[in-house]
């Protein structure tokens, strides 16, 4: 029951999804299975939340290094959960003013909207923006045009960075009418339309084959890593 039954569930669910794709009569089963998957993924969020809660509560109770930041995480987590689940600051729908819970959960001006607009978005966007500095720094240290492959990578990046900005037009615009394909924007279009298309397709076909192989290993019960250790 602990290991065999989950294998049967995974195999049956997977094969149903595969077979239903080819049989219109099973379309409803496929749609149901997709919806079940989405619901279970949403429920799994509770497990994630409980895990965060447990980990940070332990850190605070043990007074481990940096426990103060765990308090911040816990406060942010609990307050956001409360205002989101109880729709704090969400007005009811104008058509149903007598039903307090009918408003859009992320309505503009609500507490959850505030937490996204003024906490999540600015902090995550700035964290990603920081990568601009680190990418530039890493590129400076790592990129050396010491062989043909490195030169191709570096040269392509250089051409596209210039070609997709105004600098490309400014530098090569003076001969655009005679040789449009040899301008930086023209070269960028050519690289993106020919070499990048070919490379992306090769990568995507490779990924598709890899995913197909991994999926088959799961459906056939060869890959059982998702069951965890035998002791569990």
């Amino acid at each position: 029951m602990k290991r065999t039954f989950p294998l049967i569930i995974a195999a049956v669910a997977g094969y149903v999804m595969v077979v239903a794709y080819f049989m219109p009569a099973l379309q409803q089963v496929r749609e149901d299975a997709e919806e079940w998957f989405n619901i279970l993924a949403a429920i799994a969020m509770i497990l994630g939340g409980a895990s965060i809660l447990g980990m940070h509560l332990r850190k605070v109770s043990d007074r481990r290094a940096g426990w103060g930041f765990s308090v911040v995480t816990l406060l942010g987590f609990l307050v956001t959960l409360y205002v989101g689940l109880f729709k704090v600051g969400v007005p009811p729908m104008p058509e149903y003013p007598d039903r307090a819970w009918t408003g859009e959960y992320i309505a503009q001006g609500s507490a959850l909207w505030w937490s996204f607009e003024y906490i999540i978005y600015p902090i995550t966007a700035t964290m990603f923006a920081l990568l601009a500095f680190y990418v530039a720094s890493a590129a400076f240290r790592a990129f050396r045009a010491k062989n043909l492959e490195a030169m191709l990578l570096l040269g392509t990046a250089f051409v596209i960075l210039l070609g997709r900005s105004y600098a490309g037009t400014l530098l090569t615009g003076w001969y655009a009418e005679e040789y449009p394909n040899l301008t930086l924007p023209g070269l960028t279009d050519m690289i993106m339309g020919v070499f990048n298309t070919a490379g992306q397709r090769a990568v995507m076909i490779g990924i598709a084959l890899g995913i197909a192989a991994t999926s088959l290993k799961i459906l056939l019960g060869i890959d059982r890593s998702y069951l965890g250790s035998r002791n569990g």
């Binding site: 993924a41 949403a42 969020m45 509770i46 994630g48 939340g49 965060i52 940070h56 930041f69 765990s70 911040v72 995480t73 816990l74 406060l75 942010g76 987590f77 609990l78 307050v79 956001t80 959960l81 989101g84 689940l85 959960y105 992320i106 959850l112 937490s115 996204f116 906490i119 999540i120 902090i123 995550t124 964290m127």
Partner: peptide
């Protein structure tokens, strides 16, 4: 620390 807590709860609320 703040964004970890808030975004985890936000994801749960959206899923709910």
């Amino acid at each position: 620390a703040l964004v970890v807590g808030v975004s985890a709860a936000y994801s749960m609320v959206v899923a709910y």
